[in-house]
Design a binder for these strands. Sequence first.
DNA 1: CAGTGAGCGAGCTTCCGCTTGACTT
Length: 796
Amino acid sequence: MAKNLLIVESPAKAKTIEGYLGKDFTVKSSYGHIRDLVKSEDAIDIANNFTQKYEVPADKKQVVSELKKLAKEAEMVWLASDEDREGEAISWHLFETLGLKDATTKRIVFHEITKPAILKAIDTPRKIDYNLVNAQQARRVLDRLVGFELSPVLWKKVKPSLSAGRVQSVAVRLIVDREREINKFKSEAAFKIVAIFGKGKEAFKAELPERFSQQEDAEKFLTDCMGADFDIRSLETKPAKRSPAAPFTTSTLQQEASRKLGYSVARTMQVAQKLYESGNITYMRTDSVNLSETALNAAQQEIISAYGEKYHHHRKYKTKNASAQEAHEAIRPTYFNNHTIDGDSSEKRLYELIWKRAIASQMSEAQFEKTTAKISISSRKEELTANGEVMKFDGFLKVYLESADDDEEDTQQDGENTMLPPLTKGQRLALQEMSATERFSRPPARYTEASLVKKLEELGIGRPSTYAPTISTIQNRGYVVKEEREGKIRNFRVLTLKADAIVKENKTENTGAERGKLFPTDIGAVVNDFLVQYFNDIVDFNFTASVEKQFDEIAQGLKEWTAMLHDFYNPFHKEVQSTIETADKATGERELGVHPENGKKISVRIGRYGPFVQVGDSATEENEEKPLYASLRNGQSIETISIEEALELFKLPKVVGEYEGKVMKVAIGRFGPYISHNSAFVSLPKEIDPLDVTEEQAIELINAKRKKDAEKLIKSFDEDPEVKVLNGRWGPYIEFGKLNVKIPKDKDPLTLTYEECKALADAMPKDAKKGRFGKAASAKPAAKAPAKKKAAVKKK
DNA sequence: CAGTGAGCGAGCTTCCGCTTGACTT
């Protein structure tokens, strides 16, 4: 029996540490927090100084009972959870829950998993820091109060099951605000002048720093340049250098993996988790850019042996992030001499990225020589500028170049990383060609998952462990969608001066196409506006920063945590109550105008089934005539839809023809356009416009769907045509009307009888939700509930 | 899923931060 029990948060960490400490230590993991506030209303006793009621969640019971047993047998228990607010609280919860004794418990901390760091920590134990624990409690309680008081307001005033919180609501706000900036943005056109001098390999580009907003001015410029003399008026060469970026934190890893590998933040974290568990990288949820001494030495050795002494440069990075808690190292390879690892291709690619970034961070800077030539024009007072860059020493660029968000590519592309031919001052240049191209100013870029994480981190909102879940939450709630959207064709003008003649052309480009960007939904916008109107303090971008400051004061013992909560809660709760009493239901209603033919009012708003258009006033006692309704389509928004687009929607559903004696209709459902025929449904491929589906096309699609379904079919039964055995993505299953039942591994799908299928279906838990109106829906409970489940999973 | 947009109205939803597996139609 080991004399010492040491508890850390992560099992992978436990394994490593156990190796360092030998027989006297048993090292176990708590798997993060072991207790949480109960889910019920009485979790926090506000009247009694915010006393909390904690419980061990079901999935942690086993961990806790094992730790309890080991703690009893050990002579000394070492609480080694992370050194930050949450880690301190974990230690405290362990102390309380395991029933530990002061005399036989020690609290230790380390920031890196290396043998010397652990041994040093064991030599310098301390007690649990209750100030830090209190700061965590304040954080936890505040988040619960905000989330569990605000969400129900939304259920009443907007829609059931919605949510609001300190972190997610700001994330949604960022996206809604950005979308409105983009909608508001007025693009301005201006002509950009580019000249090409010289021929063949000696050719180079020069630009006019100014742009012309009028075509006449641009044309005049080109005309003036016809036959003019171009001389190099000045030539300046300056050394320049570039330094490597710091090694990865969670947030920068997510950004780079998104830009370079196209991973979603969730994917990045899944792959990183695997790399961590297989011992290839250090911990992946960190806000620190720090590397341990051991790591710095290993990196140095690797760089010198692989690239030579002059490529190494010892660097220490400091976090720029005020809210960083730095309980871990930066993300780095465990062994720098492993340039690659075993694993699937996504693991290999992410590892390579991490390895390069960490190695590069300890390498010399890259050196350049930047040349700027100013070119005078005999007929004009403006000057053209040509930029060239020559790399003198590659340094860290030998292994790694950080990429940038695609914000400002337009202006940067030309002149970057280009070489100029040998030039001398006063040299006369031969103009090849000069063009004036109409360019448009660009609206701010929409957020990607990763750039949203970056922004949240800058605002100090959220933590490395919550970035990915937050992004998922706002999508699961339907506040935000990650989508591909088609761009629009735009015309632009190009004037080209060549061989003393000016050619005018009209060209087209595709603009505004987006892939994998975050768009607010109407419900997201309505919820956001509601929160901004009634709870501006909470969704303020500085709210987290200001409460964080107070948590820090609590952690330093300068402030009493319950006093802080009282100060926050009293006015907040009053606001909640008055909002419940006075606020109207939020529907985002907007009047578009009147119908051009019948003069009826056209308005849009969100309803139970999402955003829709209404034509005509709602029916009342005087007004018997019912209004017409139509749902908005994907990508349309009540904020931006026009009358024309709204009226288009009433052209569907539409009968497109007949097949086998039954009509075929095209309509738009929750998952997009579809054809219905004889109670069967076929989704319409994206490239077909639902408004002009032909009878032939429809028949073809119905037959294609039938063929595909037939391929999936393993067997059917005479007893009930509704029951089928099918081959699904995860193996065979039984379709029982609308209920899907997995076939257990011990049953052969080919020999299943009808009775066996029925028995399997009956064995399905019937706990699923009842219909909305009890009685009416209870006629077919099995059909409704799983159908809903299916939809929820698909959305993921 | 699927042409609705109300309303009888039980009992449910929900937060943020620590951690991994279990599970997926």
